[in-house]
């Protein structure tokens, strides 16, 4: 039983990271119908930014965190401006390929700058543990869960209660109509990319104590976060988180209870089964084209 809870908690912590990356996918997809395959690599870049600020430059953890998130937001905006804006409206698959290209590029550049070794970042949460009876829960895992909850609450409030959030939702429904209603669509889209990259950076920073940072970490985790977003129903923010949690927990439990090898494919098997039953994912809306 104790083992089960330990595995469950580490699954949830992992799931939160997947959920945060998935959240980035979903934000961008909702606003621009662009599927950003490089989202995991943005997270990786966020992790390296934090490493540079904290590990190499010796800045305070929280300040470094802030710098990294801001830096990634700027990077996200730049990506939108240079790569995404010119190809908006292309067939979806072309855009997917463009972001796959971006992923290749970022991985290689990161490898060239920071090397290909596994890097570790010391954080305030790296060492401590919380003991509840016999249960031992590491601070790093709890910190991920708490931070995810806070981040989601903030994003939820932003989208539902602010003017900019409403503008973003309008843009995601129909860009042209939003433009005619006086919404600065270009700025809105830029901002969405900034937010999405910032969320990815948070994921990268939170991930740092759990695992090492290396140039392929984004690819590995991104390929788990993607099924998470699809499982939840691409385009649904709560879906992304729930999907992330499901994938994380399944992976963690499968790794513990099932023979070797199941850990990596169990999430995909579950995904396929869910898609067979509900092709639009758990929280996705099934809409048919009107004729």
């Amino acid at each position: 039983m104790l083992d089960f809870i330990q595995q469950l908690v580490s699954g949830i912590a992992l799931g939160c990271v997947y959920g945060l990356i998935a959240l980035g996918f979903v934000l961008i997809y909702k606003a621009t119908e662009v599927v950003n395959f490089a989202q995991g690599d943005l997270m990786m870049l966020g992790g390296f930014f934090v490493f540079t600020f904290i590990g190499l430059m010796g800045i305070d953890y929280w300040l470094g965190f802030l710098f990294a998130v801001c830096g990634m937001a700027v990077f996200g905006m730049a990506t939108e401006r240079v790569l995404v804006r010119p190809i908006l409206g292309y067939p979806q698959f072309s855009i997917v390929m463009a972001t796959i290209g971006l992923g290749y590029f970022l991985r290689s550049i990161a490898g060239m700058i920071w090397g290909t070794d596994d890097l570790r970042i010391e954080t305030p949460f790296s060492a401590g543990v919380l003991k509840i009876g016999d249960l031992v829960l590491a601070h790093d895992k709890l910190s991920v869960i708490v931070a995810t909850v806070i981040l989601c609450a903030v994003l939820y409030a932003f989208f539902n209660y602010t003017r900019m959030g409403t503008a973003m939702r309008a843009t995601s429904e129909n860009m042209l109509a939003a433009y005619y209603m006086g919404i600065p669509v270009k700025r809105v889209v830029s901002l969405i990319w900034a937010i999405s990259a910032a969320v990815a950076a948070c994921a990268g920073v939170l991930l740092a104590p759990i695992t090492f940072i290396h140039s392929n970490v984004g690819l590995v985790l991104g390929l788990k976060a993607f099924p998470a977003a699809v499982l939840g129903g691409f385009g649904s923010i709560p879906g992304a988180l729930v999907g992330g949690l499901i994938i994380g927990v399944i992976e963690s439990l499968a790794g513990f209870y099932l023979p070797q090898g199941w850990k990596d494919i169990a999430p995909y098997l579950v995904l396929l089964v869910v898609l067979l039953v509900r092709p639009q994912g758990l929280f996705g809306l099934s809409m048919r084209k009107k004729v």
Binding site: L83, M97, A98, I100, G101, L102, G103, Y104, F105, L106, R107, S108, I109, A110, G111, M112, T116, S215
Partner: peptide
Amino acid sequence: GLKGAIYGLIIM
């Protein structure tokens, strides 16, 4: 990693 970077650039 140069090859990967050039690869990515070509796709984009």
